[in-house]
Design a protein around this nucleic acid. Structure first.
Lengths: 333, 333
DNA sequence: CTGTTAGCGCTTTCAT
DNA sequence: ATGAAAGCGCTAACAG
């Protein structure tokens, strides 16, 4: 009987070699380059390896090859629902390609993000940063050591994958115009660059249809920030609102209800992302769906591809409008 | 100008040693056992290491020490909101203790879970399994190779951390009794063992207060399964319902609304877990809150503690009732 | 097709 | 206080 802390010793390649009466290098070949050695020997080696419960020690392999067989995910906020499907997509691709995935959360702090990335560069063959708070040049500098791909964030200096709001926004403005809306308020998030391009796009779309449009800045991209914006929405007199994301939209919905303001009777509301609770909300949320899962798989695929993970490029994935209950014709008055 | 794939070479301990004119072993000591060598030399070594951007190669260290400096999280479903805070808690503890965290999702498949665990045992110093689908003896056998702690799941054979429904359920039944309810339906989840103990508890509590109680089995612990249960709830005639978890409760809410059934007028509803959307629901959900974040931190702390991660033990963390809008006095008829 | 050998970067005795 | 040297488990030349 071993002590409570007794580890079962993990078999090495030598244990297998000894057992089959062969050299360790043969075992290594048998396991790594199927078909390059005598079929019978290979089978025997595999059988013994299996029997002994042998698994390659990743550290030993990494030490020699320089490849850890691991990729890392650096994400600002794990609990942001926007990231779930994205993370899951990335994880699926990594796992099915035989890689492990390291997860690191930075709580939105750029310093922690920088530290996390440089620490992880020794443990991973590449990094996927989600919604990075670092600027392009900082990421590019870090990427000199280990490939970095940005997801849900656009950086000119490295490969990035993000949703393209164009199709979804176009459909949303069209939808609102058809319902009869002539005014629109945009609830903008805290990320300057991203917001600018979204605002520009929305501005053009609205102006093209003769819809008046105003921007209402938010203190954050959260439920609380959305709730805070309600008085400003009401004061703006806009009959339709497009929120930076669904979290913000949830806040608007909740606060409006608390104030006895009925959505979509008083104003229509369109969210962004289509997180899982968008459908559960009351009224359920009309929203621009971003292909989160696909962003995750695309980004991880890009990262794993050695040929492409060093060349700046951007994959823009189309968005679409999901019409639910939070949009309706504007009030008649 | 290097080629597009040109990696910046990562400095080793030898580069540092050469630069300070000393032996690699001295550098190793300077960096790992502060105070054990000449203070001035140590300072110089640290300065040079910093300057060169030196970081210990985790694989090389692991190869020698047998410690990877990494823990792994094996979770059935990343997108289940119940797991977010738990994962975040675990990640925080791991990171602040200087460990990396590997994330692996098994999509609820026991085979994949078994495979994931045994694969990860070579890469990690220990594993945290969340909501495992394996039974205690399988986990115990795997735990012979590498410590395993179970979170949100009780296993007699290894250390586990889970919510204790007692306090929350007691408060819930009391709350319903005070509102005047005399009948209760329990929507049970798919995990046999867990359900049994919850049902037993609820049964005792209800009977003690003379409340009639029935169990309605669910096909899964999902929104869809909750929606499916609505006809049975109605048919049961129960005036109050306790759902296996908040996802199920959300499904009930949605389907009830679709059928024109008003909660809490027709029946009261109590959820379990208090996921973030519970507050956003309409009506907002009265629910038994489980300390998810704390389960994560407690479990990871246990795992990191070599003294305790081998000894079966169970940490039961208290739950509490959060009263919101989905509970009210029963209909008078 | 298979064995020998060197070495990846680090830690750790054992010397000095 | 510091240096020398061995070895963790694996892979990849290089031989045979």
């Amino acid at each position: 009987m071993r002590s409570a802390t007794g580890n079962k010793r993990k078999p090495t390649i030598y244990d297998v070699a000894e057992r089959v009466g062969m050299n360790a290098s043969t075992v290594s070949r048998a396991l790594n380059k199927p078909g390059r050695i005598n079929a019978a020997t290979e089978a025997r080696i595999r059988a013994v390896a299996e029997e002994l419960g042998f698994r390659t020690n990743p550290s030993a392999r990494a030490l020699h090859t320089g490849k850890t067989g691991t990729y890392a995910l650096v994400v600002a906020d794990i609990t942001n629902p926007v990231h779930f499907e994205l993370i899951r997509g990335a994880e699926e691709v990594a796992r099915s390609a035989g890689y492990a995935l390291i997860l690191s959360e930075t709580q939105g702090s750029p310093e922690r993000e920088h530290e996390a990335i440089s620490a992880l560069q020794r443990s991973a063959d590449g990094l996927l940063v989600i919604g990075s708070r670092l600027n392009g040049s900082q990421l590019a500098e870090l990427a000199e050591a280990t490939p970095i791909v940005a997801a849900n964030h656009l950086a000119d200096e490295l490969p990035s994958v993000a949703p393209d709001p164009t199709s979804g926004y176009t459909a949303a403005v069209e939808h609102l115009a058809e319902l009869g809306h002539r005014s629109l308020a945009y609830l903008s998030g805290p990320l300057a660059a991203l917001n600018q391009s979204r605002w520009d796009l929305l501005f053009r779309l609205a102006v093209a249809r003769g819809i008046s449009v105003v921007e209402i800045p938010l203190t954050g991209a959260t439920v609380a920030a959305g709730a805070e914006a309600v008085p400003r929405i009401l004061a703006s007199g806009s009959t339709s609102v497009l929120a930076y994301n669904d979290l913000v939209a949830h806040g608007v919905l909740r606060e409006a209800r608390a104030q006895g303001v009925i959505v979509p009777d008083r104003f229509s509301l369109v969210g962004f992302d289509d997180i899982f609770s968008a459908e559960l909300a009351v009224p359920s949320l009309t929203t621009v769906r971003t292909p989160l899962h696909e962003i995750g798989t695309t980004a991880m695929t890009l990262l794993i591809d050695d040929e492409r993970n060093r060349t700046p490029s951007r994959e823009l994935l189309p968005t679409e409008l999901i019409v639910r209950e939070s949009t309706a014709p504007p009030p008649v008055g």
